[in-house]
Simulated scan of single mutants.
Amino acid sequence: MGAQRGRDLLLKLDSDRSGTFSTVAGLRARRISLNAGSVDITTSDSPGRWREILEAAGTRSASLSGSGLFKDAASDAAVRGLFFDGLIRPWQAVIPDFGVVQGDFQVTALEYAGRHDGEVTYELALESAGPLTFTAT
Rank of each mutant, 00 (worst) to 15 (best):
R49I: 07
A77G: 07
R5S: 13
G19V: 05
G68L: 03
A78E: 14
A62P: 04
S38I: 14
A136Y: 01
A25P: 04
R30Q: 12
D85M: 01
G2R: 06
S15T: 09
I32Q: 09
S46T: 11
R60G: 07
Y122S: 08
R28H: 09
I95V: 15
S65E: 10
I88R: 11
G81M: 04
G118H: 02
A62R: 03
D76N: 10
S75I: 02
Y112H: 14
I95G: 01
R5W: 07
S128L: 02
L10F: 06
Y122Q: 08
G26Q: 08
P96K: 03
I95S: 03
R30H: 03
A109E: 15
L13F: 05
G6I: 05
D14L: 06
F83P: 01
S75Q: 07
L82H: 05
M1G: 12
G26Y: 04
V94G: 06
L9W: 03
Q4A: 10
A25R: 01
W91T: 05
T133F: 02
D76L: 11
P131T: 13
L87E: 11
I53K: 10
D14F: 03
D117M: 00
R115Q: 15
P131F: 00
A73R: 10
F134N: 10
G86E: 06
L27K: 03
A25K: 02
R89I: 07
G68Y: 01
S67A: 12
T43M: 05
R28T: 12
K71F: 10
L54R: 14
S44G: 12
D104N: 13
G81N: 11
V107K: 03
Y122V: 06
A77S: 09
W91R: 05
L54M: 11
D16I: 06
V94M: 04
D16H: 02
I32N: 04
R80I: 02
E123L: 02
Q4I: 08
G66Q: 02
L34T: 08
F105R: 05
A56H: 10
P47M: 07
V107Y: 00
T20I: 13
G66N: 01
A77I: 06
T137Y: 00
D104G: 04
G103C: 02
L54G: 12
K71R: 11
T135E: 15
V24M: 01
G118Q: 00
A29C: 01
L54S: 12
D45S: 14
R49G: 14
T59S: 14
S63T: 14
E111K: 10
G81I: 01
H116S: 12
I32K: 01
L126Q: 05
L82N: 09
R51D: 13
R5T: 12
G2E: 09
F105Y: 11
T121E: 15
A56S: 13
F70L: 05
S61W: 00
M1Y: 09
